[in-house]
Simulated scan of single mutants.
Amino acid sequence: MPQDRRESLRAATNFPAHILTDGGRRTPCTLAERSASGALLKVVSAASLPDAFTLIVGHSGEIRDVRVDWRQSDRLGVTFA
């Protein structure tokens, strides 16, 4: 089993959110897991997204700048800036 290197425990969520890029493009996503230091985002295509962007969480209106730590085809692991 791979070692979990997260700084803090993540809680499962299922909140709608949006990714806002520097160019003004808004991409829908789902905030699937969240911790004090970062999150797991489900997206349609991770390859087309930049390495840093603004995350807007739909249920609360929270706005966070994030940095991508890892990506898979439909998921992003991000750290809050």
Rank of each mutant, 00 (worst) to 15 (best):
M1T: 11
M1V: 10
Q3V: 07
E7T: 13
E7N: 05
E7G: 11
L9F: 05
A11L: 08
T13C: 11
F15D: 10
P16M: 13
L20W: 00
D22Y: 00
G23S: 10
G24Q: 13
R25S: 08
R26M: 05
T27P: 00
T27S: 10
C29M: 05
C29L: 10
T30N: 06
L31K: 01
A32G: 01
E33R: 04
R34S: 07
R34Q: 14
A36D: 14
A36S: 11
S37T: 13
S37P: 00
S37D: 15
S37G: 13
G38K: 00
G38Y: 00
A39G: 08
L40R: 10
L41V: 04
K42A: 09
V43A: 11
S45W: 05
A46Y: 03
A47R: 15
S48K: 14
P50F: 01
P50T: 01
D51L: 14
T54F: 03
L55Q: 01
I56Q: 09
V57I: 15
H59T: 13
G61D: 11
G61A: 09
G61V: 14
E62K: 09
E62P: 00
R67F: 07
V68I: 03
D69V: 08
R71F: 10
D74L: 07
L76F: 15
V78C: 07
V78D: 06
T79H: 10
F80I: 12
